[in-house]
Structures are given as structure tokens and as C-alpha cells.
Design a protein around this nucleic acid. Structure first.
Lengths: 148, 148
DNA sequence: ATCCGTGCAAAACCTTTGCAAGGCG
DNA sequence: CGCCTTGCAAAGGTTTTGCACGGAT
């Protein structure tokens, strides 16, 4: 954990690695795989530093996204969400499963969209630089609970 | 146009077909294919009725979505957008091209996602009931302007 | 008279910004 | 000192809500 924080913090060259910024980073490392909203990150951070401000959270999220540590998403629930960027991933292939039951978000790895993208570029002359794919439905636990 | 309005208005059974609601419907019919935000719809509606209120627009958009006349989307630009639902379309297959240059949104018809959806359901046990696919990039006019 | 729908203004919600104070080289 | 960062509070942008008025049944 210490090691990972240290490695990630190197991307903050030119910016100070303040206790608050470190704290936000910790929160995301401790909740890896989660897609946290600013408020959620704020609440988690406040457990360790009750004086941290929400504005600092927003500013830190912006910063961490700018340097590529976090990735911002929007699932249409009225707030932006952030997740730890996967190392070595080219930042372009994100598929999310948004459960309409529990609102949990999981990821899918496959990228079968490439052929579709090729078609679109060819037919529409539209140069694709990013895409967003979200599936809405019900995850296995929610489906089982429903049946139960 | 009159005919289409009359047909669509039948879906409002149980609700009054007021002049304001009719006006909002007209705006969407006259701008078919566009993805209008509440404010845009408001401005277009005000041309014909300068006294219409923004709250009425919001309430009407909700209502028209509820009865299936409009479809709501969120392209991550901080406001919800509405488009006329396509007749006979099962409301499930929307692909959008969001131009990062001019912010115009166009649609793609193909649905090559079915196979991907099948895979997801099989592997993750996630029952998909809707999806959102958005491509971000540059449309042909913007690319040509760039080159010029 | 009763509903429902409207317009206005206020509130709500998430996010950003201004600013004075703090931290640290 | 000078610069960056912080926390607070205020402001901003979008959407929702409370409320009294008004029109239609």
C-alpha cells in the first residue's frame, strides 16, 4: 500500500503531495474497483481527517484525473464518479454494468466494439476518440434476491 | 404535422392535453432528430408562447417521457436531453455520436452489441435491460474545418 | 366545487469559485 | 517573501418543489 501510494504520487510532479491529496489517494486504493462520487470519497476521507473540506475533494479529484491516476465516469445519476485508472490500460475501453437494483457498478473487460467503431468511422466519417458503454440491468445477487 | 400531434396526444390519456403540452410536442416534432435540453426546449417554446414557464417544461418533459413519447439521455454535459422516441422501436438500441467539436449529436442505427450483451449475461449473470453507447470524437464537418 | 395544470419564486442538489489564512521552501 | 493549497462560504448551473391562482369539467 505504502509502495503503491509512493509510485502513484510520482505522477504528481509539479504539484505538492499534501496530506489531503495522499488521503484521497488512500481512499481510492482502499476501495479499489469502486466508482466513488465526490461525496462518497468525502465521507470516506473524513473518517481519517474530519476537517477535510469538500472543495478540496473536488479539486483533488480533478487533479488526480488530470495526471491519469483517476478516471472520471458519468452514469447518469446526477453525479460524477471516479475510479482508479488501471495501470497499463489505454484509458479507452471501459464497459460498465450498472445494476438497477443495488446501483453497484461492475466492469466488463471485453472490447467487442472495435468492429462497430470501424464501421462508424467508415460510414459516417466520424473520428472516434473515446466511447462510453453502459449496460443497465440486474446483477446476479439482485436477481437471486428477487427470486428468493 | 397536425395528424402526428393528434396521434401522439392519444398517449396522454388520463392527462389533459393542454396548450403548453401541445406546444412542447410541436417543438420536438419540428426539431425531430435533435436531442434537446430543457433549456433549449424552453427557448424554442417561448418563441410561440412567451409566458410559458421553465417548470412547466420540466414537468412536461417528465410526462412525455413517462408515456413514451420522449426518450431521455445524458451525454455527460451536465444536462439531460430529450429526443422523440422512434415509433416501433423497442426503446433499447440507441447509439450516439457526440461530436467533441460542435457538440452535435447524431445517431447510429446498427446494433452490433447483441453478441456482446449475450456474452455479458452468460459470464457475469447480469441481466441487461438497457444499454447506453456513446462515441466521442469529431464529425466530418469538424474534421474538414480542422484541416482547412 | 373539484381537479388538475400553470407560473413564479424558492429550494434543492451537485459543483465551482473567491478569498483570506496556512504551510513550506 | 512567494507560491501553492486549504477550508469556508458564497455563487453557479440545472432541476425540483411549494403554493396560490386559474381554467376546465
Amino acid at each position: 500500500m505504502e509502495k503503491r501510494i509512493e509510485v502513484l504520487s510520482r505522477r504528481l510532479q509539479g504539484y505538492k503531495f499534501t496530506p489531503q491529496r495522499r488521503l484521497v489517494l488512500e481512499v481510492f486504493l482502499e476501495n479499489e474497483g469502486d466508482h466513488l462520487s465526490a461525496e462518497e470519497a468525502y465521507n470516506l476521507a473524513r473518517v481519517k481527517d474530519k476537517d477535510i473540506g469538500i472543495a478540496t475533494i473536488y479539486r483533488t479529484l480533478d487533479l488526480l484525473e488530470e495526471v491519469g491516476i483517476l478516471h472520471k465516469s458519468d452514469f447518469g445519476d446526477g453525479r460524477k464518479r471516479y475510479e482508479l485508472s488501471q495501470e497499463g490500460q489505454d484509458e479507452h475501453h471501459h464497459h460498465h454494468l450498472v445494476c438497477l437494483g443495488c446501483r453497484r457498478i461492475q466492469e466488463v473487460e471485453e472490447d467487442l466494439l472495435n468492429q462497430l467503431e470501424g464501421l462508424v468511422e467508415e460510414e459516417k466519417g466520424f473520428l472516434i476518440v473515446d466511447h462510453r458503454v453502459q449496460f443497465y440491468g440486474y446483477c446476479r445477487p439482485c436477481r437471486e434476491k428477487e427470486r428468493g
